[in-house]
Design a protein around this nucleic acid. Structure first.
Lengths: 215, 215
DNA sequence: GATAGTAGACAGCATCACTATCCATAGTTT
DNA sequence: AAACTATGGATAGTGATGCTGTCTACTATC
């Protein structure tokens, strides 16, 4: 198919598609002549992926490019690519603020995580920020959140196990991880609203927390 | 204290502080004369909060403003404010793509969630994107993720219950929700790395998934 | 052969989050 | 009191990001 049809079927304007081609987010179509290329279903799939990572995952174009290029590699190191995607590849200098706490948490849970996993930095940054904000009560429960993360990861693996073709697994890991973040965040918001509604209803006299929370 | 000291103690340049004042993210200092205002500890706290929402929560300035102004309200509707924060207040038109599925999920779990909760749209959008990408295997497990979200929300409520002063509760709900998303995402990434490492180690012959996953 | 579509190059644009400059004034030092 | 520095407020400029528009030399199609 030609670019007009690709645009029509994907709902993305032609200039934008050309931009993605320039940026290397979309592989070039097969040139049949100097100004004629043909695109296929793979391009449509790729465009949808790009838009999902952009709009749902909120990743910047540059990060999407690096994630996709990792995905196109024969032996992709997905953990690293997606770890970088987590914090937009902004590396704050290694201050020992939350570093030690991440370290001990990983040890406590017996997790095996490579020392240069970008997610370590990301978690350390969040911990540091929470300390700065005097929001230590959440950090006191960090093992509880780690347990939840563990359950989520096990579910992720189960989902991943349903796929057998190697190409699909890699693709799926990306989608599952990045869109999964958005899904979990959204579900948590719904569950929070429910939880605070329950709390409000339970005791006859609403606590200050409940009144504040439940509108 | 004057603006120079506020800048020094918060680590944020003076022009940036002036910008936040202009944008209404930071309440003005108390004017002692036409060109002399004094700032207090509350301003430092607020600046740290703004930076955390910006850098860790990745919220745009405009969204932070709306969240903060809700936070300054005597009767804040936090669910709504934070729901909007979840998707940057971008309201995609209500396509029935994932709407129905969110509806039935909420019903299945017996959650009580207000009909106009923005998180509904956010989750519906993610579901729609996953359908588009043909990534239905994760949606097949959506109840599992909802269960995880429920546990997270219960933990959130426990953390919140440790605070008693109303001001602190509101502040905490914001920090806990928005930074909590980042924390959970980061922990999930660590747990995923561990889970795929386990999967690799368990069976002598690595599955395609494991080799792909574990580098 | 007229018309419409295309690849590729390049320039322009809107938004965002600052950053820089200026000015009249105020505090501070000498 | 004079010199100097800092401040609040206003306005303009900057760099990055994610497109969008225009142009040219071509090509497919009617």
């Amino acid at each position: 198919m030609r670019i007009a049809e690709l645009s029509r079927r994907s709902g993305i304007p032609v200039p934008t598609i050309k931009y993605y081609l320039r940026e290397g987010l979309l592989p070039p179509g097969e040139l049949s002549s100097r100004n004629q290329a043909s695109y296929d279903e793979g391009h449509i799939r790729r465009l949808r992926l790009v838009r999902a990572l952009l709009e749902i995952g909120r990743l910047p174009i540059a990060t999407i490019k690096s994630v996709l290029s990792e995905l196109d590699t024969p032996e992709p190191n997905l953990h690293h690519a997606m770890g970088r995607a987590l914090r937009g590849s902004i590396a704050s200098e290694p201050g020992p603020e939350g570093d030690r706490e991440v370290e001990t948490l990983i040890e406590r849970r017996g997790w095996s995580v490579s020392p240069e996993a970008p997610a370590r930095r990301a978690v350390a940054d969040v911990i540091a920020a929470m300390h700065q904000l005097g929001w230590d009560s959440m950090l006191a429960q960090i093992d509880g959140y780690a347990e939840i993360a563990d359950r989520a990861a096990r579910l992720d693996m189960e989902v991943l196990a349903r796929h057998s073709e190697p190409d699909e697994i890699v693709y799926s890991a990306v989608v599952g991880t990045i869109l999964g973040d958005a899904l979990i965040a959204g579900l948590r918001r719904l569950a929070q609203e429910n939880a605070s509604a329950q709390m409000y209803r339970r005791d006859g006299e609403p606590t200050p927390a409940a009144t504040r929370e439940c509108r």
